[in-house]
Design a binder for these strands. Structure first.
Lengths: 203, 203, 203, 203
DNA sequence: GATGAATGAGTCTTCATTCAT
DNA sequence: CATGAATGAAGACTCATTCAT
């Protein structure tokens, strides 16, 4: 499926991807039928199979494009910043913003975990993300700014905490991404302990 | 479906729950058919519907029983401990242990998030868990042991970070629950900043 | 299935017949399951198959007993009356009364017509009924009281008209059986033409 | 299920309706499976659900179209006739003819009565039919041609008697519709009493 | 006599995919 | 490119009936 697409074709493809993302996020992957998707766009079934080999491949495509888009956003955000802690912070903020604007993507990811056949797609993206974070964490450790534990743990912790906060606070409680990012960063940098120490200045 | 079950009946029901959990976790909810489940136990299709109203209700039942079991485990773990920080720590440790022993449950939860109809079941359990954690967090704040931010954020952060670490380190990287718990607790209590402060003594 | 039944056994059998009649009439034969019937009586499934060979045979039994009962009622009603017109009238009246009290039976009959396998049961009863009416009609013709057309047509007409009026007026419009019977008899005896004749005295 | 159908599509739909009508009439609604219907036409199972939402809805559709068709036939028959008695007569005759040609429809109606969920469909048609007849009856009463009883009773009586005669004589005994119509009309107009009156001229 | 449990063929229905036009 | 139509395997679920206890 490597069709040369006209401008109109690209537009169609985009419509399909977006509509499907919405339905998958709302109803789930399996409960959403191809028929439903094409009906939603008011086109025939042939259209779907013109642009995608299968429903499965469509889903994988959605994951791939989202991962790409998020990463591009993060990279733009940290561009030019040298301090690793600041880069982590910027990364978290940009992730929060992107997530707030793409809340559907979260559910798709959750689902992808649950079926063997989608794991490869997912892992590819996750590994890239972890590596990105780990680079900054390691840099921070090297410069004595971050506790010298396994960068791995820390990177995963950052991702996990961010993910949870995004989900709960932005999507469910409708807080602003910035506000949530502040809290996430504070927790990540300083933990939950009271700041009654000499130099404990939460950002 | 509130049948009075004989001993044998209870046993069957348990078999079905366990086998289904396994298959759902391995293959996903939708790809696992009722036929597959009953074949796995070598019984007729009617047996399934003798014990459960539907495949959907079976899944909900699995979630419910797991939530109950985890909570019981946590409560036993913190029983008798008074210090809120220690209670949080014990809670995290017992959760890690339980999760390590019930890794299937994690996938089921992930999946449940992705379909509207399972969300209510999930939320019920989550709310209870958050309330449990928040109680200790608030207690810690009151005693000046925990930074006085919204207990809500902190509780969610704790859950999110724990969940992520469990997933990645225990299930994917096969570390021991204790080791992972140590790291989780350190991160939660003190964040990622270096400990170059006067009184930075992680519990 | 010719069990020697104890008093208690006969009572059980009767309960099953009555409850099943009700359900069949309300919901239809097929949509009513054996499980539903035994649950309604709060007994196990074994009980059902102790008294009846099958669901089909139960249904046939219901038809048979109802036909018997109706016929007994009619015969008691016309006993001692000699005038054929009066006998027809009494037959109609008793049928109306019986029908009003056994409205369920009507639906069962309707249904039985629609499945080949129940037709024999039905026909047996119908033939008896037609013969009964025809005897009186023929008698009336012989005595010059009834128009000398085919007794067959007349008998069928009487049954059809009665049946329809019972259905519509007693069951759907809740008129009294007597009132409806008056109308049925008038229509049958004198048709719908105006009574502007010399000797038009409806009985 | 309001698909825009091509010519071929309409043809298919018609085939399905007709074949199903036949099978339902022969075997009964429940004993006839969707599989049987599609096999009978040599098409795949999906075809059925392309044209109908469900087996139930197909049945309802059959009833609806038959009612429509019968009514159209009756209206064409009485068109141009002014005398109410003659209109009733023409209505009866056309009904007999239509019924003789659509004997399957009778069984379907019988069955529909027996399940709650089909009653609404049935009633709708019945009400229309009754209203049609009542209009003529009332007209006849107004002109002094029909006995001044409740038009309701008379209309119902006409329908009931006609229905019964159709069933028994045309379908079971294979008389000609005309012959049966003659008898029905005679019975309806003049009842069963002897014609020994001054002006008793059955039409 | 009676019960809970089990059977498994059979039912309706869905849906990804293909194809003729 | 696009559509309506068709396919048919597969799925969830039902239910009359049987059986061990």
């Amino acid at each position: 499926m490597n069709r040369r697409l006209t401008t109109r074709g690209k537009e169609r493809r985009r419509q399909l991807l977006e509509f499907a993302t919405q339905r998958f996020a709302d109803n789930g992957y399996h409960p959403t039928s191809v028929a439903e998707i094409v009906q939603g766009l008011g086109v025939g079934k042939g259209v779907f199979y013109w642009y995608f080999d299968s429903k499965e491949q469509l889903f994988i495509e959605i994951l791939r494009e989202a991962q790409q888009d998020l990463r591009r956003t993060q990279q733009q955000a940290i561009e030019g910043e040298d301090d690793p802690i600041a880069r982590i912070e910027l990364g978290i903020r940009s992730t929060m913003l992107w997530s707030a604007e793409h809340e559907n993507y979260y559910k798709l990811t959750q689902f992808a975990i649950t079926e063997e056949r989608f794991l490869p797609s997912l892992r590819k993206g996750q590994e890239v993300a972890i590596k990105d974070v780990m680079r900054h964490v390691q840099d921070g450790i090297d410069r004595g700014l971050i506790r010298d534990t396994s960068a791995d743990y820390i990177a995963q912790g950052i991702l996990g905490l961010s993910t949870q906060l995004v989900r709960v606070f932005i999507h469910e409680k409708h807080r602003s991404p910035d506000e949530v990012a502040d809290e996430a960063i504070a927790l990540i940098l300083d933990g939950i302990h009271t700041g009654d120490r000499s130099a404990a200045a939460p950002i």
